[in-house]
Structure formats: C-alpha cells, structure tokens
Amino acid sequence: MLKVEGLSKKLGDFAVRDVSFDVGRGDYFVLLGASGVGKTILLETITGITFPDAGRILFDGREITQEPIQNRNIGLVFQDQALFPHMTVRKNIAYGLRSRGAGRGRTYKQTEEIARDLEITSFLERRPGTLSGGEAQRVALARALVTEPKCLLLDEPLSSLDVSARSGMRALLRRLNRSGLTMVHVTHDYEEAIALATRIGVMERGTVVQTGPPDEIFRRPASEFVARFIGIRNFFPGVLIAGGDAEFRFSGLVLSILTDAKEGEGYIIIRSEDVIISLEPSRTSARNVFAGVITDIFPVRLGIEVIVDIGVEIAALVTKESAEGLGLECGKRVWTSIKASAVRFVEA
C-alpha cells in the first residue's frame, strides 16, 4: 500500500539515504532504530512536509513523491503531539474536517463520535495545555483519525507517556490497527516493536537495514548491528497466567516468571546471557529447568552462542572456555536453566 523506494533526504544534521520498504494494507509496520537515525525525517517526507532529494514514494500504486501535503491523506501524529494551544480540544479535532470543507453539523457529529471512541469527551472544551501526556496523545490521535486517513504515521507515540498511560495507549493502537488501519510507527524501543508490530524495519545510520516479521528480525538478525541493537535473541509469544506465582505458557512449555502484569496474551524476552547451560539438571534457585538438544553453536562478537531445542529454540550466550570445558557440540543433550526473575514479560 505504501512503498518507499530509494529515498534520500538531507536536512540539517540529519539524513536518510537510499531507504526502501514496503508496507502492506492493514500492516502495523514499526520502524525501529536508535534516536538520530533519521526516523522523523522519513515520516515527514512520507507525509509531504518535506520533499526528498531522491527516490520515490508510492501510495496505492500511485506516485505521490511530489504531491502537496494537503492532498495526501496520510495522517501523522507528532512526537510532541503538536496540538494547537490556542484552540480547545474540540476545535483541534475539528480542524482537519473544517479544513476539508466539512459543514458544522457533520463536523460536530464526527468530533463527538471520535471523542466517544477515544474516551476524551470529558475534556473536549479544555485547552491542550491542561491535559496530561496520555490525554494529549489521545487527542492527537483523534485529530488525525477524524479525517479518516488511509494510513497513520506515528512518531514515538509512547515515549512521552508514563508507564500506566503507555499500556492503555498500546492497547488503543492495536485496536485501531485491528480495525483495518494501516500504521507506520517509529520507535527506538524494541519492546514497543514486539508488542505491536506485524512487520519491522530496522534503521541504522539513516537507512533501513532489515525488514521482516518480528520473529525473523529477532531470531535471524541480518547484521551484527541489528543483533546488538535488538539486544535480545529469545522472545516468544504466549499467554500469561497470573496468580501466586505467575506462569507463562507457550509452545507446550510452562515458564515461571516474576511480573505484576495482568493475565493475558503477551511476549516474553530472555536475554541470551541469562540462559545457563549445564550437563546435569542442577539444583539452583533457577525455577525453570528444561532438557534439550544443541542444534547449533557458533561464535559471536562476545563469546559463543549455543542454540538449544527445548521444544522451542532458545539461545544461550556462553564463554569460549565454558563451551570447551563442557564439551558443547551439536546434537549434545544438555539442561538449560532460566531464573524466573530474568524473564521479562511484555503485554500484547
């Protein structure tokens, strides 16, 4: 639906070069990269706030590279929301409709509808300056959504929110995507990418170095950079069962974890350096001990990575000395232990 081809743009100290990616209809595409790699420029170029130095942008098969911004109908939610401080929330939301020539009646009706949907009805008459971060973000979303964009771009939509507002906003974004809206979300936070993305594009120094579904990006990082930037090798979707001791069920396995999150679907992340390999089922404080067979073993920048099949493939990072000392090799049967406190849960 949205196709970016060989896009280059230099703007002040920031630059993107030769960026290409493809976003399908209904995708939740997350552009993941450290701050300062040019993610915001990329969004501004797609919306038409700035024009590229080179490359093409196609939308529904039609080239829109030189199309004026007001004709593109690609919504953008700015990182700092960019709400108009001299207007009430209601007027902020109505702004796009009025600008497109909607009458008072229709504007009122649609504003009320979207306000109800995003639960902002109670502060429609307030000024943006009086809103909390989460409220302002919902208003910014409402303002973009009310014009019914074919695609919504989000610049770090969760970064200005506190933890409690964040999970609500995540749920809202997911709901919008599931209702059919194509979304492009820019972030530096891989947890956001895991929780939301159907596809991920990883950005490094102004260009997209890998695109693919999340499991491919995390399990098979295309470059050392991606692997290091992502920083995690083990992540699995499943269901959290809360209670006295929380449990996470996935792929026929049950893992004890420490979390105060609510029950429900989600992902767990285990850093490869937190997975311990032993030849015997050890008696340690680790709650999660699984038997498995080594399927792969290879050197990485720091140490040796060992892939063990325990029902799912799990990566463990060990030192060269350990690998040699234990005689680790493909096909060998080993035990893996994971401390419950080393498992990080991300709610979906």
Partner: peptide, 13 residues
Amino acid sequence: EQLEKAALNLGAS
C-alpha cells in the same frame, strides 16, 4: 513550525 506542519498534514491550505 511543528504546529504549521501539523495543520498542513490535516489538510489545511
């Protein structure tokens, strides 16, 4: 300038 960009993005001339 961000506010002007936002307004343009919402379809204003």
